[in-house]
Simulated assay, not measured.
Amino acid sequence: MPTLATCTYQEFTPDMGIPVRTTAGHPRFRLGYKVAGHAKTLTPTRALLAQNLPEDAYEFSYRRQLTEVGIDAIRAELEAIAAQHESGRPLVLLCFDRLNKPGNWCHRTQAARFLTEQTGQEIPELGACPAPAAPALFDTK
């Protein structure tokens, strides 16, 4: 399995690695870089997207989709994309959703969890993440 990371289209910069689309649609805004490939095995189906599910239900359905595709097919597709580009650079799985906004979540982080469980490879998020909760300064008990 190639080295992987995740990010938004908006926050990605070419020094991060090789940009790979994981979205059903193309970005509708101009990118300052060329997307190197489309990881179709990791792209949520349009039927799943149309359901507008809460995060936990969406992840359940999305994981079912990934399991049906199978880790071997996912690995083969990602290896084929990586083979077309400079070796040693991570594939950066891209989508639109910024994670630093309260309540935002994204299929790319769900895919990263699934792939980590299947392969043992940690997959970092390169975009802005939610700020950790501030520690309590005073005991409120």
Rank of each mutant, 00 (worst) to 15 (best):
E55Y: 04
Y58S: 04
D56Q: 13
G37A: 08
L31C: 11
A50V: 01
I18M: 05
E68Y: 04
A47W: 03
E68W: 03
Y33K: 07
Y33W: 08
H26V: 09
L49R: 11
A57S: 10
H38K: 12
I18R: 05
H38N: 08
P14N: 06
P54F: 01
D15Q: 15
R30P: 00
Y33C: 06
K34C: 03
R28L: 09
T41E: 13
F60T: 14
Q51C: 00
V35D: 04
Y62D: 10
K34I: 07
L31G: 12
T22R: 08
R63I: 01
E55Q: 14
E59F: 14
H26W: 13
M16T: 02
R21G: 06
P44M: 06
H38L: 07
L48E: 02
P27W: 11
D15G: 09
A36W: 02
Y62E: 09
K34L: 10
G17H: 09
T45Y: 01
L66R: 06
L48Y: 05
A24E: 03
T45W: 04
L48S: 04
Y33Q: 03
R63H: 15
K34M: 05
A50P: 01
G25L: 14
V20N: 02
R21H: 12
R63Q: 12
A47H: 07
H26P: 00
F29G: 04
E68I: 13
A36N: 07
L66T: 10
P27H: 12
E55A: 13
R28P: 00
G32K: 05
D15F: 12
Q65Y: 12
F29Q: 08
T23R: 08
G17S: 10
F12G: 09
K40C: 08
T13P: 01
E55D: 04
Q51R: 13
T13K: 14
N52P: 00
A39S: 02
K40A: 15
P54D: 14
K40R: 15
T43E: 13
F12T: 05
L42D: 06
K40Q: 14
G17V: 06
L49G: 00
L49F: 00
T41H: 06
E59R: 15
T22G: 06
G32Y: 02
Y33F: 15
P14G: 07
A57I: 00
T45V: 04
E55K: 14
Y62Q: 10
E68H: 08
R46E: 15
H38E: 05
R46G: 09
V35A: 04
G17M: 06
T13L: 07
G17C: 10
E55S: 10
Q51I: 00
